[in-house]
């Protein structure tokens, strides 16, 4: 399956950032897994920030992928936070109860400040 999800990774103090764009669905598994590995290898930060500002589609398989990232990060002792979620995706994070475990921020700057403050 060809993925319509793209990622870029970068580092902020205390946080490895994965910026997602396009569609987060089942076909994004390899893209997301690779981005996670790149981000945490390049930056041994205790936190991984997933930025959804440029995401315009998430289905239930995509949410399952995010759970897998969360599980992987937690098993490595890393915190996962998210930013750039529209009201719609905030609601999805609420109903799937992902927001019980992932701190949500308005944007990357707010997330970086929040993670730094913790």
């Amino acid at each position: 399956m060809t993925s319509k999800c793209e990622t870029t990774t970068r580092s902020l103090p205390g946080c490895a950032v994965i910026e997602l764009s396009g569609e987060v669905d089942g076909s994004a598994a390899d893209v997301l897994s690779k981005a996670y590995d790149e981000a945490v290898v390049a930056d041994q930060a205790p936190c991984v920030l997933l930025d959804f500002s440029a995401v315009d589609y998430i289905n239930s398989t995509g949410i399952a992928l995010i759970v897998s990232v969360l599980a992987k990060a937690r098993s490595q002792g890393r915190q996962v936070v998210a930013s750039g979620l529209s009201d719609h995706y905030r609601q999805i994070f609420a109903i799937t109860r992902l927001s019980d475990f992932i701190q949500l921020y308005d944007d990357i700057d707010a997330a970086a400040a929040g993670v730094g403050a913790n």
């Binding site: 589609y57 998430i58 289905n59 719609h88 995706y89 609601q91 609420a94 109903i95």
Partner: peptide, 13 residues
Amino acid sequence: KVPRDAAYWAPKV
């Protein structure tokens, strides 16, 4: 802008 997936998700309960 209504997201394309909006109609596919259950409302929050």
